[in-house]
Amino acid sequence: MRTRVGIVGAGPAGLVLARLLERAGIDSVILESRSRAYVEGRVRAGVLEHGTAALLDEFGVGDRMRREGMVHRGIELRFDGAGHRIDLEKLTGRTITVYGQQEVVKDLIAARTQSGLPLHFDAEVTGVDGTTLRYVHEGVTRELQCDFVAGCDGSHGVTAASLPGGAVQRWERDYPFAWLGILARAPAANEELVYAYHERGFALHSMRTPEIVRLYLQVPPGTDPAAWPDGRIWDELRTRLGLALQAGPVLEKSVTPMRSVVTGPMRHGRVFLAGDAAHIVPPTGAKGLNLAVADVRVLAEALVAHYRDGSQQLLDAYSETCLKRVWQVQRFSNWMTSMLHRPGSQDAFGHRLQLAELAYVTGSDAAATTLAENYVGLRKEL
């Protein structure tokens, strides 16, 4: 087979890129190593920046999001036993939408399927040789010849691993804590997301629907989820959040390590990296999906310019353009993480500094605006 753009991975980055290219009349083929059921069932992020939600509307896959998603106009920071609301809409004129990443993926897959354009599940890419993708599908080894390759296959994907040695550099940071997360069938205890700093550690109250909550606790790296029975989790959440949580059946339980990774440049020849294939951010700032979408918007614009008038300028600038935003998002996510988590060896002085930081952020309009404009999503010109 031959296509203009071969896309490795059917996560948000790959699917959004394919949709943007489709609207510009540029053909593409998506190869995904997992099954459709697996891809649509992966529980991931649930916060869409203002611009991400607007883009889904713009290219015709936002109807269900607008029906079922929840528009939030603020978030709450809790510390010292009290809650402090950050009014996102008042401070920035923009909002966020709570809508699960897996739901975004379902909507994009449905649109791709309806268009009848190539999307192959259970198609494992085994090698990237320049712009040739070798993959196995239905037991047959095949090749896909491309003008360009978009590696949207995550942090452990084959695209980045196939680049020659020294082609890219990686900057990494591991954090001294992890998140124990649960998805539970229980009513939300607050109308908006709650980020809590507590002497026992960080906690987060979020939701996927009014009846499904997503809750997190700071735990040490390497924590075994089995060491946390459901009752213990609910008790600890109530303590740290200071909310009257109503317990319900736990649908999923997992521990996620906290780390930051940036790969640069995000391009080698005609192979481009996007989303988690190029960077990972700690989840505190709710930026993973949104940063992936920002990447492929830049890439799609560059590819459209190339096919429209032969211009290479935007393609050549792709990595530099994306990395400016990537590092800004890393800065914000690192700041949120550092402000809200208790290091295991923290002394009383450090504890007081964190409380002072939180008091300043919630007590100063200037500081609150800084948080708010990053949280709802940096504008394109930033």
Rank of each mutant, 00 (worst) to 15 (best):
G83I: 00
C152P: 10
A123Y: 01
E124N: 10
R94D: 11
G60N: 07
A110F: 01
F59M: 06
L144G: 05
G60F: 12
S155D: 00
V128P: 08
A111D: 02
K90G: 13
K90P: 05
V61M: 03
E143A: 02
I75T: 05
H120E: 14
G81H: 03
M65F: 04
V71S: 03
L117V: 14
L133K: 06
A111L: 10
M65P: 05
T113V: 12
M65I: 09
V128W: 02
D122I: 06
F121V: 13
A150N: 05
I109L: 15
L55D: 05
H84S: 13
G100P: 02
Q102S: 15
T141K: 11
V105S: 08
A53Y: 01
R142C: 11
G151D: 12
I75E: 05
D147Q: 01
V128H: 00
T97Q: 10
G60A: 08
K90W: 14
T97M: 06
A82N: 10
D87S: 03
L119E: 09
A53W: 05
L91H: 08
E68P: 01
R85E: 03
T97D: 06
T126C: 02
G100V: 04
D129N: 04
Y135C: 03
R94H: 12
K106D: 13
A82E: 08
T92V: 08
P118K: 10
E143M: 06
V105A: 00
P118R: 13
L55H: 09
G93I: 11
R134T: 07
Y99N: 04
G116R: 08
F121N: 13
K106M: 14
T131A: 09
Y99W: 03
A53Q: 02
V61N: 10
G151H: 02
I75Q: 07
I109C: 09
R67E: 15
H137W: 10
C146Y: 05
R134W: 00
D63F: 15
A111R: 11
P118A: 12
G62D: 00
Q102C: 07
G93A: 09
Q101D: 04
A110L: 14
D107E: 14
E143V: 07
D57A: 00
G139L: 13
V61C: 01
Y99H: 09
G60L: 00
L144C: 04
V104P: 08
R73F: 01
R64N: 06
L133C: 01
K90N: 12
G93Q: 09
V140R: 13
L117F: 15
Q114G: 15
L117T: 13
M65D: 02
G62T: 04
T141R: 14
V125R: 03
E58S: 06
T132D: 10
V61I: 03
H137K: 04
G154L: 07
G154H: 15
T132M: 15
Y135Q: 09
A111V: 12
R94S: 09
G60P: 13
R134C: 01
R94E: 13
L91P: 00
F79R: 00
F148P: 05
L88F: 04
G81C: 06
L108S: 12
S155K: 15
R94C: 11
D147A: 07
V136L: 13
V71C: 04
G51L: 11
T92Q: 04
L55W: 01
L144Q: 09
T132H: 03
V136S: 10
R134N: 08
L91Y: 12
